[in-house]
């Protein structure tokens, strides 16, 4: 019982940390999650976390929350999922509750604006690094490179929804590797 509670608490605190430092949305969060979940705590392997990111982007809900729920669920079942979920959203809830009351001061605070300009630069670097790190695990042949380029162009052009890009990628993977007669 104590052991279980300790597991839930650990999930809560790790995802609280991740939630506290997630700026710029779910993509910028990927290196943080990878570091905490794979490198620091060993809760998932490198290739598993990539699949979790892929699934988190394909189902309803914000990416950060979905990833937290995936990891929590794998580790400690339903209550683990809830602990990770509450952990990842609590920092933003607290901060927004404070800001909602100090709205006008917050908006015009010069120091905050400057500090945030630095964080915005970091967010670009974080997302680009997330892409490169994912590429190392995800692209192993020419087909993979082609699929990644295809997704990049479609997504940057904003032509079709992410869901359809994922579906096309999944189907082409099934067809291509079956025809090659190898399982990857």
């Amino acid at each position: 019982m104590i052991e279980k509670l300790r597991g839930y608490w650990k999930l809560f605190t790790v995802f609280f940390r991740i939630g506290l430092f997630t700026f710029g949305g779910g993509f910028a969060m990927m290196p943080l999650i990878e570091r905490e979940v794979v490198e620091v705590h060993g809760w998932a392997k490198q290739d598993e976390i990539l699949d979790i990111f892929a699934l988190a982007q394909s189902v309803p809900g914000a990416i950060g929350i979905n990833t937290a729920v995936f990891v929590g669920l794998r580790l400690h079942g339903l209550l683990g999922a809830v602990a990770a979920l509450i952990g990842v959203i609590t920092p933003s809830v607290i901060i927004i509750l404070i800001i909602a009351q100090l709205f006008s001061q917050f908006q015009s605070n010069l120091h905050l604006t400057r500090a945030f300009s630095g964080v915005k630069a970091a967010v670009i670097g974080l997302i680009a690094a997330a892409a490169l790190r994912a590429a190392r695990g995800a692209i192993s042949d020419r087909f993979g490179l082609l699929v990644a380029a295809f997704a990049f162009v479609l997504s940057a052009a904003g032509i079709i929804s992410v869901v359809w890009v994922m579906v096309i990628g999944g189907l082409s993977g099934i067809l291509y590797y079956r025809q090659r007669g190898e399982s990857k």
Partner: peptide
């Protein structure tokens, strides 16, 4: 998943 993983790379790259 071998087809979906590269998609994630492309999507994250586009987001960057």
């Amino acid at each position: 998943f071998s087809g979906i993983r590269p998609i994630v790379v492309g999507l994250v790259g586009a987001a960057a």
